[in-house]
Design a protein around this nucleic acid. Structure first.
Lengths: 194, 194
DNA sequence: GTCAGTCTGCCTACTAGAAGGTAGGTATGT
DNA sequence: ACATACCTACCTTCTAGTAGGCAGACTGAC
């Protein structure tokens, strides 16, 4: 456990906020410098190129997401409640505006103009989550808790897409509650009546 | 029916392609100039500021979308087939890569850094479509063709969000068929069994 | 008809500022 | 002595946007 100066993390935190708000081309090193209280050139010391910064950021984001998935897998036994935990996490982030959009979802919008190594990380994030959701849905069916109309794979992709679309609609309407309006019925539909 | 030079339209067409691929901050007047075969300054003759260009573009896009809705309303009697027409339109656009993303959905991602007048147009587009979908779904229920689990309003928002999320997933995976994988079950779920 | 005036569409040439990035220096800690 | 973290100063390229000119098409007045 090295404990390096927190500046690199501050830069990443700031970059994340800026990207979530305006995308890859919506922020500059100058923007970060102003917030972190450092000179523009000093950011290049930590991250030589912008693509290095964003690639590192997405990698860290993916690690955090993997840890989050791990925690849910360990602490939430019921598959349905696992889905609720996932949706609830974003509901809270959007409600308090702390992170009103998934970093990778936003970057995915701009894939055609993104550096290739960033694209690879973003794509991997999508695969990680659709894979996890597939597993959760399949287990929910096996345990008789969930009711699917398609394969777990297809339902997982649809679930992920709807969650991302819900983020987008919440942003489009400027109304955080839109996220819950869309995602709660999505969850309820999966509940197997007993 | 004035027939002005088509240059302004060429500029708008080009801007649309560029925005759909990389967003508001992902293109410049120089990019358009290179494609249209005109000088950078000449674009300012047609659209003084970038926000003017994009606002006009979104307004035109909305007019086209309204015309499309009108045509579907007139030519497709069945509500379920109306939904199929809407989804099918995007399926074709994504498959042939002619317009692999909804202009307004992509701009909505960047709302926090967009000019206010552009945001207003984008927001209006979302309202137009969720309104139309609400109407179609309600009529589908009234005619006994569709089966909803929630209110037409909520189902319409979920439908729109899933379609947008499906575009995003198709882009994220670099796989156009992902759009159909997500949207076809979405449609089938609404079919009322007879 | 034609001739001045004007409007349109596009041009060259330019600006100020912001973009990402580099060179080379200094203070500090090991 | 070496590396880390940061600095000032600078570079090139790109950004949106402006100023002013020029050729051609439309306008009305004579």
């Amino acid at each position: 456990m090295t404990r390096p100066s927190t500046t690199a993390d501050d830069i990443l935190d700031c970059a994340r906020t800026l990207i979530v708000s305006g995308g890859y081309n919506g922020f500059s090193y100058a923007d970060i410098a102003a917030v972190v209280g450092i000179r523009k050139a000093s950011i290049h010391h930590h991250f030589p190129a912008k693509s290095d910064l964003v690639r590192t950021l997405v990698a860290r984001y993916r690690a955090e997401a993997a840890a989050g998935i791990g925690a849910v897998d360990r602490n939430v036994p019921d598959p349905l409640n696992q889905l609720r935990a996932y949706v609830g996490y974003w509901e809270a982030c959007i409600a308090d505006a702390s992170a009103p959009f998934c970093l990778c979802a936003l970057l995915a919008c701009e894939i055609p103009v993104l550096p290739a190594d960033v694209v690879a990380e973003v794509r991997a994030h999508f695969r990680t989550f659709s894979g996890w959701l597939t597993k959760v849905l399949a287990r929910g069916v096996a345990e008789g808790r969930l009711r699917l109309t398609g394969t777990p794979e297809a339902e997982a992709e649809a679930f992920l897409a709807t969650v991302h679309g819900a983020m987008l609609s919440a942003r489009a309407y400027g109304d955080p509650s839109m996220f819950a309006t869309i995602t709660h019925p999505l969850l309820e539909r999966l509940v197997r009546p007993h």
